[in-house]
Write a protein that binds this DNA or RNA. Sequence first.
DNA 1: TTGTATGCGTTATCAT
DNA 2: ATGATAACGCATACAA
Lengths: 337, 337
Amino acid sequence: MNIGEIARRAGVSRSTVSYVLSGKRAVSATTRQRIQAVIDELGYRPNASARALKEGRTRTLGLVIPPASQRLTDMQLGFVASVVEAAARHDLDVLLSPSGGDHDRSFERIVTGRRVDGVVLMEIRLTDDRVTRLATAGVPFVTIGRTADPRAMSWIDVDYATLISRCVHHLADLGHRQVALVNRSAELVAAGYGPSHRALAGFRTAVAERGLTGVDVCCGDDTPSGEACVAQLLAAHPEVTAVATINEAALPGMQRALSAAGLSVPGDFSVTGVAAQHWAEDFHPPLTAADVPMRQMGAEAVSLLLELIAAPGGPPRHRLYAPPVSLRSSTGPVRPR
Amino acid sequence: MNIGEIARRAGVSRSTVSYVLSGKRAVSATTRQRIQAVIDELGYRPNASARALKEGRTRTLGLVIPPASQRLTDMQLGFVASVVEAAARHDLDVLLSPSGGDHDRSFERIVTGRRVDGVVLMEIRLTDDRVTRLATAGVPFVTIGRTADPRAMSWIDVDYATLISRCVHHLADLGHRQVALVNRSAELVAAGYGPSHRALAGFRTAVAERGLTGVDVCCGDDTPSGEACVAQLLAAHPEVTAVATINEAALPGMQRALSAAGLSVPGDFSVTGVAAQHWAEDFHPPLTAADVPMRQMGAEAVSLLLELIAAPGGPPRHRLYAPPVSLRSSTGPVRPR
DNA sequence: TTGTATGCGTTATCAT
DNA sequence: ATGATAACGCATACAA
């Protein structure tokens, strides 16, 4: 079933069928109807590969996600969902590439096989070979997150430094003097994961500004890690009265550890941080936190990418999100233990 | 950068380059090395669209997921991850289509645009237009889940009826006489979602077999719904001493409601069901549950699909998973309240 | 208003 | 052992 078959049945040339499909040339009403009838009858749709070959574009976006082996966080999943959704609104398909390191076969296929018109790259590190790979290959791309020197590229990111800083100031305003930061996993920090490093920087800055005592710990992205991490924190630093976190997946475990230690939130202990709205609202009591607007960010990433594809020489564009800290019920005045 | 350019630089014809790449024809060592050197130097890789057009296959699988608007459950996410991972092992890319209803543009592109060699379809309903659409279009497909009459198609599924039945029998063995089933959302049930219907059937059968009293309720796929659902259940049926569920996303809320009611698990109340291992182990105490082997199922789906693609006329194949109920710590002997 | 011819980049058949 | 060439299905420049 190809365009020639449609043309034959409709008694016209292939180009006329093509022009009926694209609307790029006037076609008389009668022939158009005749052709359309055949198309509808046979359910014809143009072969995507042939069209891509001819047009030089695939109408497909690549989405590079963290390797499937490690569970995606809710926030990552939110990005994936919103990118796919935004792409669908533009009638674009999304090709998934689970690529962590370099020299990844799937990633290489996407980069160099001309399978996609552009790429959205997730889970960026401060130095990231995939970014240079895409840049040298000349593939338009937008990152969710940014490298250490992101001036030359287009990206959107969450301003973790500012957000964690705001959280610390909020805790300081409530009288807390000894606060902790629960970061992401030690592996991510070691790998140069930007949000972790920037959150830590913001934490230290704010702690210094307010003359607080701050302790920071790494924590795996899951419930058991969160529980172990906070249990250990309470044992090693009993003077800590509040915690800020960017590790939403650890929240249930953190809550469990606090409960096991007999600490009520926010009466005995305050919790705040950066999280997907869903996690903040699932916390008990609802978490005072900066809600990351994942859906908006995914849509924005696609939007920037489409601009980049349309105008390959254009200037890089950025968007740094610093959503306000939503006051809910998990932070309160310090009450010394 | 195309194959002609490589041929020119290496001083050979395009076909020789092609044969070096495919290995389908003997090429002398010297010319092969010369060509390979040029390929490596320029980082050449064949244009995927041209290759797909010529070969008649795209080396791409389609994965139809529930619409992005609704959050994916952990189990769904596990399927997605394992399908993508399994496809990558076969050097196949995965095209995502978030399609719930019919007449979905993204779905239509995939089905009829020859963008993929085969499709994995998730979140199947008992009667599902997408299945008939794929069948009439002649696209090889495998479903995760099955329709009401799945004999003619290839699928893998979780045997919810058997698993929930086992859970009920386990509870009956422990002396529970009044048990409840927490199902998925009312919308899913109304839409003819297979797992919900089959779980309910298994529940009713087992309840009858053991002469128990059973009550079943629908519940949204999130923490608040789980909490509200169990709170309501306890209020309306205070005689219930145990619950089985297939709604893993509601588990944290269910736990919260039990805790709020002053019921300890498993001392005062038993909880069991079907869940991803991750959810079972995150429960407090660890949940006695049938662990759905998502990773294995995704890999199996890809495997079946590849068979189907290789032998289009082959007989349909099925695989029904009934993993054993893992005894953990959330079920215990009944203790009347 | 419509038809003809060309080329996108690749693989495979035929010829040398 | 290698080269010339046709064909995959489409979009479009050019012709009529």
